[in-house]
Computed example of a mutant assay.
Amino acid sequence: MSLQVPLAERGDRELLAAHCAGDPDAFGELFRRHKDRMWAVALRTCRDPELAADAVQDGFISAFRRADSFRGDAQVTTWLHRIVVNACLDRLRRIKPTSELPEYDLADRRDAHSSTVVRLDVQEALGKIPEGQRLALALVDMEGLSVAEAAVALGVAEGTVKSRCARGRSALAELLRDQHGGAYLQGGA
């Protein structure tokens, strides 16, 4: 009699294979394990919590249905990133583009911490750079994917990810410099 390894102790590939083989709980474990990271990617991509939530749902439904399309030439998380990013892009294409973030009246909040201001300024600046650069930066600099993993997730060459990241970082630095006279680049907020 063999003992079955608990779902929480199985690797992602093993869980995906179990799902494809008919295990009714395997995909739920993948979802539990990766939903927060996919939410972060979707939120950075869509910049709207409702759109991000819908895109994550769309992405995981798509992954659930197309699990047998996983070829195994990348990590399961990279495969999920690509599906969620594509779901985000599909959602964004269906709506009118908006370039403005919600208004935050930080002047009335004297207790607002400078790191919150920095995050809001960076988020606003991210909204002003081209989508390809924003997605590359979100995956590489914010989510910690390697350039190779980001390339797979975005469906582009590694060199494209590198150049988008470099151009995106340069554009962000310029936007933040223009907005704050170089304070971020000099270490002050």
Rank of each mutant, 00 (worst) to 15 (best):
V122N: 02
R10I: 04
A40T: 09
R33T: 00
V147P: 09
L185N: 07
G182K: 00
R33H: 00
M142D: 14
A40L: 12
R65T: 11
A21L: 09
R177P: 11
A8H: 05
P102K: 12
A148Q: 08
G155M: 04
S2N: 15
V147M: 12
D90V: 02
L106N: 08
V5T: 15
V56N: 01
V161L: 00
R94D: 11
A136F: 04
A74M: 04
A183S: 07
R169S: 08
D178R: 13
T116E: 11
P97T: 06
R66E: 14
R65F: 03
D36P: 04
F27D: 07
A21F: 09
A26V: 13
T160G: 03
M38I: 00
S170Y: 10
G159E: 03
A87W: 00
T98Y: 10
N86V: 05
G132I: 13
A42M: 11
L16F: 01
R110F: 07
R177T: 14
D58N: 04
V152P: 13
D108E: 15
S115T: 10
R93D: 12
D58Y: 04
Q186L: 14
L106G: 12
C20H: 07
E158I: 10
D12P: 04
F60L: 11
F60R: 03
L16N: 08
L139Q: 10
L175D: 03
R164D: 10
G182W: 02
L80A: 01
D36H: 12
L101M: 09
A74W: 05
Q4Y: 14
Q186W: 10
H180Q: 08
A55K: 01
E131D: 12
P24E: 06
G159R: 03
V117C: 13
K128I: 08
E29D: 00
R32P: 12
R10K: 09
C165Q: 09
E100R: 13
F64P: 06
L7H: 14
A125T: 00
L3C: 13
V140F: 01
K162C: 09
A166P: 04
D121Q: 14
L15C: 05
V152T: 15
C46K: 04
G187P: 02
Q133E: 12
E9G: 09
Y184F: 11
T116Y: 11
R71G: 12
G188T: 13
L51F: 07
R47M: 11
L30V: 00
E124K: 10
E103L: 15
L89S: 09
S115R: 04
G28Q: 01
C88P: 02
S62N: 15
E50S: 10
A21D: 09
D68Q: 13
L16K: 05
L185P: 03
A125K: 04
G159T: 07
